[in-house]
Amino acid sequence: MLARSCLRSTRAVGAARNGVVNATKRAASSSSSSTANASSPFGLNLAGSAATAVAVGSMTWYYHLYGPELHAMTPAEEGLHPTKYPWEHIKWNKTYDHQALRRGFQVYQEVCASCHSLSRIPYRTLVGVTHTVDEAKVMAEENEYDSDPNDEGEIEKRPGKLSDYLPAPYKNDEAARAANNGALPPDLSLIVKARHGGCDYIFSLLTGYPEEPPAGAAVPDGLNFNPYFPGTGIAMARVLYNELVEYEDGTPASTSQMAKDVVEFLNWSAEPEMDQRKKMGMKVLVISTALFALSVWVKRYKWSPIKTRKLTYTSPTGGRRPGRH
């Protein structure tokens, strides 16, 4: 491309030079009264267009060389970028749908909790969000926790309380890896904040398992093909299938419905303060608007005598100049 543009430009320059020479010859031979100015526009045009061609050519070449973005990774390594879904709770004046949160918690407990922990969520935080106090207490009591040492120093088990955290499926990370073919199921408490694409990514990941990997794609043993996972090989198999969960509110439990609910629940577990935060933001906006308006009014009020005063200068009458006196 460079060679071509260079050739073209040299040719153009040559043509321009010829033109200029011809033009001057013509000007010299024709002994008319017209000066060189009258005949030169043709030559000037040629020279100008040649310069433009050179400039455009070199810019094109430069852009061709350095313009395109370089990617270190192939699209497969990058993973398919998730589609943006119009989540209701992400809008700045909307809260979580708490029915969806309740359904999402059900999905988490019945499906995800067998491998993924949710270690930062105690039962008390569910109160008033997804469940009532009594429901939360009943759920907490279903689990056993270590109690304080008794008189003999033995640690006994006691039923859970509201202040206990959701139990983890494995004792530690090593146990989790050993049970899952070496892959560690991440803790889901902050997973929405911890992944690029947040809700969209997790929803796409949960629902995006194709029936079979595209032709030619290499899927290593023990991994599953998921286009959204960077590298496309994910250890987690597809877990959500239609009607896997029976919702207590009768919502049809399609795969995408369950994924949507559980993602909204996970977003709540990552940002439990969101409802409150948006409410507080609204208060801040309203109050600061009022205070700003007040301050504008006060400023105008205080400045009004200064802004509206009139300075006049009356020169001293009479012929005498001041100073001579």
Binding site: T74, P75, A76, P210, P214, A215, G216, A217, P227, T232
Partner: peptide, 10 residues
């Protein structure tokens, strides 16, 4: 492989 084409379609 057809991963890239699959990505575009998906």
């Amino acid at each position: 492989d057809c991963v890239e084409e699959f990505f575009h379609l998906a």
